[in-house]
Design a protein around this nucleic acid. Structure first.
Lengths: 208, 208
DNA sequence: TTTAGTTTGGGAGCCAACTCCCATAGTAGG
DNA sequence: CCTACTATGGGAGTTGGCTCCCAAACTAAA
């Protein structure tokens, strides 16, 4: 009869799936652009639909609520490549050393020249300037954090609930979040630099 | 003719002002309670009004939008007492040492026994469980952070834009924010303990 | 080309946030 | 008690988020 009624639940990797993914991405792209230009509240779903050349009802088919338009998929949060880079470090390295290397690796691979990275950076810069967006993504940050804590614990040979592990995770993720926050308030955004700095300070400590 | 048309703009310290303040506080209190019980979206302004024994229009008079109901005044963010405690530390102490003392002082003074502190803690615990609330308050966090950076810079005799100062501020505020975040996701909330732990680790560094 | 499955358009409609406005109840000060 | 002045009530109305639904356009396979 039917494989799926909603666009969201098709078979994986089909040609339909690709179309749906493209449509969804296009909608969100236009939405973020408009939110950046006019603000979140001042932008209606109708406007987003018009910008994407679609009917409002179609937009609602892909994003059940307006709020969902600002919830980003994992790819945009640049966490996955970092996690992989961290895992790839030789196991004899300590947590902080592995962290240091992983940061350099992840940001050299995704670095400057690659075309897709440019776009991701553009979107990130846009995202940072829309309060509703990162506010909406705080939830996924919590889960990312527990994931990272497990990663660290594994390498350190400790329990995932170890106080020192948790403390490290909090400081690392927290510092990056605050950097995003500051960037959103007008500061210049150089996320990779802040990340390297943070890791470095975690190793060397402060002279204050 | 008229001193003020809107409840928000009366003369300071008058008897009317007190009444307005009490009303506003009562509305927000009921709103937070309901948001905690039923969720933010599931709660209508009409329900909040009913809980506070007021007409919906009156609620809108005090809070222009429903969203404003979850924007907290500075007293509830427990930052001010901490800043005062930090300022009160003898100037010969380093930033981290002063930080350490200030934390202990602030949380002994506001500690357990004081009646108002109990209520603040209750509200804080409630607040943490409502995503929309701390999401809405991220903005004020940014300004608090720059204020703290100035505080630290002043004591360290450095510029407010000093990288190390900024890094320290990010880690401290960030770690606390992440703790709040985790607490909101179901973890047990012991904010003072986390704060003390964070300051301690900033001084001693990590063994990872 | 035909067929079956899928996405889209767009209208009708519900609900809650939000605005405006004026009459009414309540309070402070003389 | 009287008089300003202020807070409140509540109705009428607008807007936009969101749902439902069915006919039409479209696309991938047979």
């Amino acid at each position: 009869m039917v494989t799926s009624e909603l666009p969201g639940g098709g078979s994986p990797e089909g040609p339909w799936e690709r179309k749906r993914a493209r449509t969804k991405q296009a909608i969100q792209r236009h939405a973020l652009r408009l939110f950046g230009e006019q603000g979140y509240h001042a932008t209606t779903v109708e406007q987003v639909a018009a910008a994407a050349d679609l009917a409002p009802s179609t937009v609602f088919r892909y994003f059940p609520t307006k709020h969902d338009l600002v919830v980003l998929d994992d790819d945009l949060l640049m966490i996955r490549p970092f996690i992989e880079a961290f895992r790839a470090q030789p196991p004899e390295l300590g947590v902080l050393a592995a962290l240091h290397n992983a940061v350099r690796t992840a940001f050299d691979e995704t670095g400057a020249s690659r075309p897709e990275h440019m776009e991701i950076q553009d979107r990130a810069r846009l995202v940072v300037t829309i309060p509703e967006v990162w506010a909406a993504n705080m939830g996924s940050l919590a889960s990312s954090m527990s994931g990272m804590a497990e990663l660290f614990a594994e390498r350190a040979g400790r329990d995932a609930g170890d106080p020192e592990i948790l403390s490290l995770t909090r400081m690392l993720c927290g510092a990056m979040t605050m950097a995003w926050l500051a960037a959103g308030s007008g500061a210049a955004l150089d996320l990779p630099a802040v990340l390297e700095d943070t890791v470095a300070r975690l190793r060397t400590g402060f002279s204050l």
